[in-house]
């Protein structure tokens, strides 16, 4: 059987909110090392990769590897019934066709069980090679969210460029153009407000803002976001999940005709 007890249940609620509009159905792959998920959006342009390590759970048991096929909209409906401070436990039998979500209120005076039907999903796993990215930028996640939202009101695509000075986001549309530069900034009081640039080579790539906007639904998971870019490769937008792992989004670049 599989059982995972998560003291900070709100993390799971936030993960679902971040991915449920991008991916419809996906397998949650449970093993003794944790829960992993990999899924593409329906147009095969973006990919979600989630890792929740067993060590981040208060209690974790997985007797044999299980692929739990889940409709994310339905799981989101169930998790919305959990309080933000609730402890969430996931349970599934080896041969079962359901998953149980148990919600415990912080002072243990309310215990709720929700059972959800599982589905059979043919997963399409992609092999993502280890890559030394040409540029890696870490910046405040709220700042990235704001930039992507602001640019979305002006254009459909953004050119993301990284030089040793910083990262730039540019767009253009019927009403005009916009260009935002965030400079490397490590002289701030709080580490989470820093913008850092690691660069081997300047890089500039074009991406659909609609997808970048969707990724920023994960902002609540982490105060910082890491953008990894290489010429002619998908961008990686990574939100680290404290003590547990990460939520990563990959987005294929656009190419000039």
């Amino acid at each position: 059987m599989f059982e995972g007890r998560l003291l900070q249940g709100s993390l799971l609620k936030k993960v679902l909110e971040a991915i449920k509009d991008l991916v419809t159905d996906t397998n949650f792959d449970c093993s003794e090392t944790g829960i992993a998920l990999q899924a593409m959006d329906s147009s095969h342009v973006a990919l979600v990769s989630l890792l929740l390590k067993d060590t981040g759970f208060d209690h974790f048991r997985c007797d044999r590897n299980l692929a739990l096929g889940i409709n994310l909209q339905n799981m989101s409906k169930m998790l919305k019934c959990a309080g933000n401070d609730d402890i969430i436990t996931l349970k599934a039998e080896d041969e079962g066709d359901t998953i149980t979500f148990m919600f415990e209120s912080p002072n243990q005076d309310k215990i709720s069980d929700f059972e959800m039907k599982l589905m059979d999903i043919d997963s399409e796993h992609l092999g993502i090679p280890d890559t030394d990215y040409q540029a890696i930028v870490t910046m405040p996640s709220a700042e990235f969210q704001r930039i992507v939202r602001d640019l979305s009101s002006i254009g459909d695509t953004a050119v993301i460029g990284v030089t040793k000075e910083g990262i730039s986001f540019s767009t253009g549309g019927d009403i005009g153009k916009a260009n935002i530069v965030c400079r490397q900034n490590t002289n701030v009081d709080k580490e989470e407000d820093q913008t850092t640039v690691e660069i081997h080579e300047p890089v500039s790539l074009t991406f659909a803002l609609r997808y970048l906007n969707s990724f920023t639904k994960a902002t609540a998971l982490s105060p910082q976001v890491t953008l990894s870019l290489s010429k002619e490769l998908p961008i990686v937008v990574e939100y680290k999940i404290e003590k547990m792992g990460f939520l990563r989004f990959y987005l294929a670049p656009k190419i000039e005709e």
């Binding site: 593409m40 147009s43 095969h44 342009v45 973006a46 990919l47 399409e124 796993h125 992609l126 092999g127 993502i128 090679p129 459909d156 695509t157 074009t206 659909a208 490769l233 998908p234 990959y250 294929a252 670049p253 656009k254 190419i255 000039e256 005709e257």
Partner: peptide, 14 residues
């Protein structure tokens, strides 16, 4: 308008 690449052009299906 630039063309949208597909992820399968970068990553192998496994």
């Amino acid at each position: 308008t630039p063309l949208q690449n597909n992820l399968s052009e970068f990553f192998a299906m496994i």
